[in-house]
Each structure stands twice: as C-alpha cells, then as structure tokens.
C-alpha cells in the first residue's frame, strides 16, 4: 500500500465504522416501523381481553399475557434466590480449588447452551420423570434454570464492585462473615444485583423455543386457576396453588402461532403481539440501563 491510499483510508475509516455501527440501529428501526405499521390497528382494549380465536379480528392475547405473568413470577421465585445465593458463595466463600474451578467452567458453559436444549431437559425431567406435565411450574423451572447463569454472573460482578474496606470495617467491629455479607455487602450491591435480575427476566420473557419443546400448547382459551379467590366463609379468601399445575401459553408462543398461520389477518395479530412484547422488553432494559447508570454515578 502506498502512503496516499493509507492516508485516504485513515481519514474515511471513522465514517465507515460509524455507519456499520449504526447499521444495527437501522435494522432495529426498520423492525419497529414494520411491526407498528402491520399491527397498530389491532391494538385496542379487546385485544388484551380476548382469548385466541379462529377469526383473526376477534383474536386476542388474554391467555398469553396472563400466562407470561404467571411464568415470569414462577421463574423469578426460583431463579432469584438460587442465583443470588450461588453468586454469594462463589464470590465470598469459595476457595480457589478444583471444585470451584469446575463450578465456574460449568456456569460459563451453561450460559452458552442453546435455549432449545433446556426445553429438552424440561421434557425429560419435569414432564416425564416428575410428572409435572406441561404446566406453569414446568415452564417456570425451565426458564429459571436458563437464566440462572445470568443472575449468578451479575451477582458476582456486583459483589466484586463492593470495596473491601467495607468488609474490613465490619469484621473490625466483630461481625461474623454472614453478618458482614447480610448487613453490609448485600445492601451495597443491591441495585447492581437488581439490574442483573431485570436483564435476566427480560431475556426469559422473550424465550419461545424451550417452552415449545416442553409442549406448551398454543391454543389456550382459559386462564390458570386464580391464586386468590373470594369466598363466602371465613377467612373470606381462598388461596389455591392449582394455577401452577395448569397448562399455559405465553406471548412469544402466541406470536409464533400467529406467524405460522397462512391467513393474512393473523399477521396483524402477530405484529400487535410483537409491539406488546417489545414494549415490555424495552421498558425492562431501559430500567436496567438507568439503574446501572445511577449506581455507577454513586460509586464514582
């Protein structure tokens, strides 16, 4: 290469770099505009309050969004305590030995296992072996295992960013290890851990493949049993866990179902469902980015 060419390339590269970087943004914009144009007409109240239907203009996402709420709550209830606990162990307690190394490699590998394989795991263990059937509980368990590595890694990173002087001060006052973690380290790392949890949940909310493999039905014209119902007798509230064992569908599965129908009308339903799903995902990510920004500001 002669000097002149290098000079030219050198001066135009930043522009090319910026353009390529913005290419992704352009795709995202095209995606949003496309989904909005296709689906905005279907976005009315009855879309949220109707069950799926054979007629495209009467179909709605009631069972899908309620199912998504059920699955997300179940996932969070399982993944958050286990993930945070495992993160605390690896960051605060684990000594450098073979077992710790093994757990770490294992988590790194699990984070890269395709999500569809978690569905197969669920089919084999939860549906067949434990006879939980294709229930909310099976789905929640699968997604919990899926996001566990994300929560563990986020917790570890958050704990690592807590200055060791805080721990030293706590020990100096006679606190035990657990007291130090419980009352000093965890509160300091709280918002960063919370950020990780939100990101993990926003990943789980869009997962489709593992739940399809699990056998989640696509046509569900009913809701899981409500956990709390009013009753005539004292104490006037009836609590039921039956909902966890009921079949379910979720928003991404409903969208997939509509996309694979040949009728044009269902594409509008799919696009409307996509708008709802994207709004939820973006809000969650936005909150996470904001929290991260705030906690970075506080630390610096």
């Amino acid at each position: 290469m002669n000097k002149k060419r290098i000079k030219i390339i050198d001066s135009i590269f930043p522009l090319i770099g910026l353009l390529i970087t913005l290419l992704g943004l352009a795709v995202l914009a095209a995606l949003l505009v496309d989904a909005f144009l296709d689906g905005h007409k279907r976005l009315n109240l009855s879309f949220f309050t109707s069950y799926p239907s054979r007629k495209p203009d009467q179909a709605g996402i009631l069972s899908a969004w309620v199912g998504t709420v059920w699955i997300m709550c179940t996932t969070a209830m399982i993944a958050v305590p286990f993930g945070v606990a495992a993160g605390i162990y690896l960051e605060e307690y684990a000594r450098k030995n073979k077992l710790t190394d093994f757990i770490e490699i294992n988590i790194a590998n699990l984070a890269g296992v395709p999500s569809v394989i978690y569905g197969i795991l669920g089919l084999g263990i939860f549906v067949r072996m434990m006879h939980l059937e294709r229930s909310v509980l099976s789905g929640g368990l699968i997604l919990a295992l899926l996001v566990l590595p994300i929560i563990i890694l986020a917790t570890r990173e958050a704990l690592r960013s807590v200055p060791s002087s805080i721990r030293a001060a706590s020990y100096a006052l006679g606190a035990t290890k657990w007291q130090t973690i419980r009352f000093q380290v965890l509160p300091a790392a709280k918002s960063q851990i919370f950020t990780g949890i939100i990101l993990a949940m926003s990943r789980a909310i869009g997962e489709t493949a593992p739940l399809i493999v699990l056998g989640a039905l696509t046509y569900i014209p009913f809701l899981p049993t409500h956990p709390v119902t009013l009753s005539e007798k004292f104490p006037f509230l009836h609590v039921s866990f039956q909902g966890f064992l009921d079949p379910f569908t979720v928003l991404p599965i409903q969208i997939f179902n509509w996309v694979s129908r040949p009728q044009k009308g269902f594409l509008a339903d799919a696009a409307a469902g996509i708008i709802v799903l994207l709004v939820i995902t973006f809000v969650m990510n936005g909150v996470a980015v904001y929290l991260r920004y705030k906690s970075q500001k506080k630390l610096s």
């Binding site: 995606l31 496309d34 869009g206 996309v259 594409l267 799919a270 990510n285």
Partner: peptide, 19 residues
C-alpha cells in the same frame, strides 16, 4: 443501543425475516 439489538426476542427477528 447495540445491547438493545441483543435483547429483542428471537421470535420477533423471525417475524422480521419472514415478513
């Protein structure tokens, strides 16, 4: 912004590719 690209559910990308 780039991270948002990675956060979009894959079923949405599928729709985008097809439609």
């Amino acid at each position: 912004i780039l991270e948002v690209l990675a956060a979009v559910p894959t079923v949405v990308y599928g729709y985008f590719a097809l439609i």
